[in-house]
Amino acid sequence: MKYFLSLSAIISLSLFSSDRIGKVPVYKIAVEAISMNEESLALRDFIKGEIQSTSRGTVTLPLKSLGNNGWEFDKEGNPSPKTQIRLGNLNDVDKLLLVSTEDGQAVISFVDVLHQKLEYRNSLPDSLSKTLVSDFLGFLDKKNIYLALSETGTGSNSPLKINSLKPTYIAGEPIRFEIESAEDNYVYVVLVPENQKGEPVLLFPNQIQNDNFVRKGDKVIIPDKRISFKAASTPSKDRIRAFASREEWKEFQLRGKKEDSFYRLLPPAVTGTKASHRSMMVVASSLTAPIEQSPVMEWEYQILSR
């Protein structure tokens, strides 16, 4: 989190057009069994059905000649050279979900194909495979929220205006700007880092400015002067995205550590085996709808090294 309290550089401030309106951000996920026993195939089909029925992603056609050899990652999630080559050969796939059941253990691994990184790996005894699936779906819900915050289409119908955000910043320079609303709205302001491995950070509301209902004509300084928000030393191109919503986003959790200034926008708590299949489906189907249905304006800025 502290990494995102520092930003990096860029050259132009731009307002994005409405050509991305209507885009529903979901990942293209290949779900594959890496051991072909009956239990592994059943687990593959079960989790594939869960993803499809709850609209958590687009499940692709089975991959050809996937095999169970060569999928190797170190403790940091980096692939071996052989695995790098295999991932590089995967086309039209965002994520690779590998499942297996061996020696009484069910295993789920989730790989970011583009960035060649193992993002999730967990295992439980076969008898707890549904609990394992629930844990993974909770992780995928978080990924879907971050994707919606980053990729939901912008348009010209947003009532929000941003002031004082400069086109360029110098490393270490404080970043602070003003949001103005032409209507009464709940406002959510997100930092989207250029590095796509990073996660969007909720700048507003935050632990000091926790009331994000902005009335027509009001102007709000973001972040509060009591919060340190500075540009980092590494040049980069980052985006500020401001969402206007008539209703509060009650579907999500706002959480942050006491020592951090900013919240994270997270999915509702999943109660594991106590959560019914029906309730999980209802939550997942509507999870990112508040984000996708809220008008959003986007600004881009650059940070220069000293």
Rank of each mutant, 00 (worst) to 15 (best):
residue 84 Q to F: 00
residue 87 L to G: 10
residue 48 K to S: 11
residue 54 T to A: 12
residue 57 G to Q: 05
residue 62 P to W: 07
residue 51 I to M: 01
residue 55 S to C: 05
residue 74 D to M: 05
residue 64 K to Q: 15
residue 84 Q to D: 08
residue 57 G to E: 01
residue 72 E to H: 09
residue 66 L to W: 08
residue 58 T to L: 11
residue 81 P to E: 06
residue 51 I to V: 12
residue 87 L to P: 10
residue 80 S to M: 02
residue 77 G to I: 03
residue 76 E to S: 13
residue 53 S to E: 14
residue 83 T to R: 02
residue 60 T to N: 10
residue 70 G to I: 02
residue 81 P to S: 06
residue 75 K to M: 13
residue 50 E to R: 09
residue 75 K to A: 15
residue 51 I to S: 02
residue 70 G to P: 05
residue 51 I to A: 02
residue 78 N to I: 01
residue 48 K to P: 00
residue 67 G to R: 08
residue 71 W to P: 09
residue 47 I to P: 02
residue 82 K to C: 00
residue 78 N to A: 10
residue 85 I to V: 13
residue 77 G to C: 06
residue 59 V to D: 12
residue 71 W to D: 11
residue 51 I to F: 02
residue 57 G to Y: 07
residue 50 E to K: 13
residue 64 K to V: 12
residue 81 P to Q: 06
residue 69 N to C: 05
residue 62 P to G: 06
residue 51 I to G: 03
residue 59 V to K: 10
residue 78 N to Q: 11
residue 49 G to S: 10
residue 64 K to F: 12
residue 76 E to F: 09
residue 66 L to A: 05
residue 48 K to F: 01
residue 74 D to N: 15
residue 63 L to V: 13
residue 78 N to R: 12
residue 64 K to Y: 08
residue 63 L to P: 08
residue 47 I to C: 07
residue 88 G to T: 05
residue 51 I to H: 07
residue 60 T to M: 14
residue 84 Q to V: 05
residue 52 Q to C: 00
residue 88 G to D: 13
residue 84 Q to T: 09
residue 81 P to A: 01
residue 73 F to M: 06
residue 55 S to W: 07
residue 52 Q to P: 01
residue 60 T to Q: 10
residue 57 G to K: 05
residue 69 N to H: 13
residue 57 G to F: 05
residue 88 G to I: 06
residue 52 Q to F: 00
residue 53 S to Y: 05
residue 69 N to L: 12
residue 87 L to F: 08
residue 67 G to L: 07
residue 67 G to I: 07
residue 56 R to T: 01
residue 58 T to E: 11
residue 83 T to H: 01
residue 55 S to Y: 13
residue 74 D to H: 04
residue 67 G to Y: 04
residue 49 G to W: 02
residue 75 K to I: 14
residue 72 E to K: 11
residue 50 E to V: 04
residue 48 K to D: 00
residue 86 R to S: 10
residue 81 P to W: 03
residue 76 E to R: 08
residue 67 G to W: 03
residue 60 T to A: 14
residue 55 S to Q: 10
residue 51 I to D: 02
residue 73 F to G: 03
residue 65 S to W: 02
residue 83 T to N: 12
residue 72 E to P: 01
residue 47 I to S: 04
residue 48 K to V: 03
residue 81 P to C: 04
residue 72 E to R: 12
residue 86 R to T: 04
residue 77 G to A: 02
residue 63 L to S: 07
residue 79 P to K: 07
residue 58 T to C: 03
residue 51 I to C: 01
residue 54 T to H: 01
residue 88 G to A: 05
residue 52 Q to I: 14
residue 58 T to V: 13
residue 86 R to D: 00
residue 74 D to R: 06
residue 59 V to E: 12
residue 55 S to E: 12
residue 65 S to C: 08
residue 85 I to E: 12
residue 78 N to C: 04
residue 53 S to K: 13
residue 49 G to F: 01
residue 81 P to D: 08
residue 78 N to W: 01
residue 74 D to F: 05
